[in-house]
Computed example of a mutant assay.
Amino acid sequence: MEKNRKIRPERLDDFKNLYYDAFGYGEGNHERAAEFFGVPVSECQKWHDERPHPVAHRYLQVHCKGYLPYNTNWKDCYIRSDGMVITPFGNCMPSDMALLHRRKWSAEQTRQQLVKCRQQLQELRSGTKLKMLIHTADYLGRLVKELAVEE
């Protein structure tokens, strides 16, 4: 692993907007924040009015995004309160995500079956089995004509 790997600083949304989204406006919001962060109400008031603690800011950012990791891979995604995962490419339910591995497995099994079927078809088209079938069909056709003429 690289020891000198530089970590890009994350861009956090405005703390006050996150604070209002999570705890609301008006009375009781600092109490709800204090319960959420596990700190005294005075500490939450200080973070709100002055400057928030960086860890509290990151934690609130993650919370407001629906507990998705806060990095560039998930930057445009979030989880709604009803559990729906919102992405730039569409929305999905948690059940969709749970079935993702099953769907991938099923698609791979289908792909493998298709490859086998194509190989078998190629063998039938180019192999001796096809020649034998054509010869048998030709023989049966001639036999039917002979029987039809005799009657």
Results as ranks from 00 to 15, higher is better:
96 D>P: 02
31 E>F: 03
118 R>Y: 12
8 R>A: 13
109 Q>A: 06
10 E>Y: 14
15 F>K: 01
25 Y>G: 01
99 L>R: 14
18 L>Y: 02
122 Q>P: 03
50 E>N: 13
49 D>C: 08
90 G>P: 01
68 L>C: 01
45 Q>E: 12
80 R>V: 04
16 K>N: 07
44 C>W: 00
19 Y>S: 00
106 S>W: 05
88 P>K: 00
124 L>M: 13
17 N>I: 14
16 K>G: 02
71 N>S: 08
97 M>T: 13
49 D>F: 11
114 L>T: 12
52 P>Y: 01
31 E>S: 06
114 L>K: 09
54 P>T: 04
101 H>I: 09
115 V>Q: 04
89 F>V: 07
8 R>V: 09
89 F>I: 11
87 T>G: 10
57 H>D: 06
24 G>T: 00
75 K>G: 02
113 Q>T: 02
51 R>P: 03
58 R>E: 09
119 Q>V: 04
72 T>D: 15
55 V>C: 05
101 H>R: 11
11 R>C: 13
71 N>V: 07
29 N>L: 00
73 N>R: 15
67 Y>L: 09
11 R>V: 14
53 H>F: 10
19 Y>G: 00
77 C>V: 07
34 A>L: 01
9 P>G: 08
16 K>L: 02
20 Y>E: 01
83 G>Y: 02
9 P>A: 10
24 G>F: 00
44 C>N: 02
27 E>N: 14
22 A>S: 05
120 Q>P: 06
92 C>L: 09
101 H>D: 11
85 V>H: 03
84 M>W: 05
94 P>N: 04
17 N>L: 15
42 S>L: 10
35 E>L: 08
74 W>S: 10
46 K>M: 14
81 S>H: 07
76 D>L: 07
95 S>P: 02
115 V>F: 04
48 H>L: 05
23 F>N: 00
47 W>Q: 07
77 C>N: 06
27 E>G: 13
56 A>G: 08
104 K>F: 11
107 A>E: 12
68 L>K: 01
75 K>C: 05
41 V>F: 01
8 R>D: 11
88 P>C: 03
44 C>P: 03
106 S>R: 10
34 A>R: 00
123 E>D: 15
15 F>V: 01
123 E>W: 10
72 T>Y: 14
33 A>T: 00
82 D>I: 03
92 C>E: 02
73 N>M: 15
27 E>P: 07
69 P>V: 04
8 R>C: 07
77 C>D: 07
42 S>A: 12
51 R>N: 11
35 E>G: 04
87 T>M: 11
41 V>T: 04
63 H>T: 13
10 E>D: 15
80 R>G: 04
115 V>R: 05
86 I>R: 06
64 C>A: 10
99 L>D: 15
